[in-house]
Design a protein around this nucleic acid. Sequence first.
DNA 1: CGTTTTACGTTGCAGTCGCAATGTAAAACA
DNA 2: TGTTTTACATTGCGACTGCAACGTAAAACG
Lengths: 194, 194
Amino acid sequence: MPKVVDHHERRTRIAAALLQVAADRGIEAVSLRHVATEAGVSSGMVQHYFRTKDEMMTFALAVVAENVMARMAGQPVAETPAAMIRALVIELLPFDEQRRIEGRVLLAFHAHATNNPTIAALLRENADQLRTYLAERIRTEQAAGTTTAALDAGHIATGLLALADGLGVNVLVEHYTADEALATFDAYLTAVLG
Amino acid sequence: MPKVVDHHERRTRIAAALLQVAADRGIEAVSLRHVATEAGVSSGMVQHYFRTKDEMMTFALAVVAENVMARMAGQPVAETPAAMIRALVIELLPFDEQRRIEGRVLLAFHAHATNNPTIAALLRENADQLRTYLAERIRTEQAAGTTTAALDAGHIATGLLALADGLGVNVLVEHYTADEALATFDAYLTAVLG
DNA sequence: CGTTTTACGTTGCAGTCGCAATGTAAAACA
DNA sequence: TGTTTTACATTGCGACTGCAACGTAAAACG
């Protein structure tokens, strides 16, 4: 056998190139050759680590999902419940280049999921995870009496995430800036949590 | 000259076929040949009415935008401000097949707009129109004192539309049903408008 | 040290794409 | 009635796609 190689590392590197291509030129520009060129490798190597294009796409999506989750989990504990929610959801808005790229890719995958059950399932799994996490934290605050919100925590979480999704999309297509989106989000937060 | 032909009608018919293909098999399946087949015409005819694929896509998007606007404008005047907003935004949620198709197509175009200025501009124009319209109606209600909302009408409109966008996307990828989305939306409405 | 297994690189094939080019038929206009 | 103009249909070309099929070289293992 040749050089022992970290498969996961190679796949991750290729996925990163895929995300770059998708963010730069749209997901329809994601081809084996383009990704290979972007990664600086041969298309044969890409084929070596991903048997099909679909497998490559799915892996890349999983990478993005992991990144988002990791960023949210790495968030420090906030003082007030509103601040906590704000900090979490801000992570979903495209404020810097990294989040812009991820946002574009996620948007493209959402469009794709519309007629691709595999991708739809992957997206749904992550969204559920996020929603459950957020709802749980809201419930905790409600139990502790630190928030005035009388609404069902599940509805609040769903609404917050959907609002973040919608604002994110609108920022990505440049209907308004991330700051304006945040202002709108804040208005919603105060309305719901007091 | 041959048979005098209604150009706009032909283009609209082709656009309808495009939307069908996009909704059925994803926007990446939209090719001159597929659209032509779906419309039951030759690809030469499609080329006759649209000089480029891009022109065809843009036209189809404009058709969708018109449909949405027409449906919203055709909405009867509601009793309460909340009911009015609710009726308007419900039109944006994918409750029936028609709105599901339009939603899918719009979602795909939003992803596309991320790196296509022409489409981005078209989307932005429509979104602005919608937002202005909604904000204006909210302002009217506020002036009449028929709503308790203290927030800036612009922010409310932006938030409502973004929330509708986000909920719509989540319904399209089947994270939850349109009814659940509506429940969440209602919770938001009462929180904001009282 | 020889064998085997893995990690790539290269090439090619069948299919699809957008689009240009060309052909044909029919109706409006002179 | 003849000419011109428009409405299509057909064909083909160059570019691109995913993917299979090979080839090669190097390192782990016996």
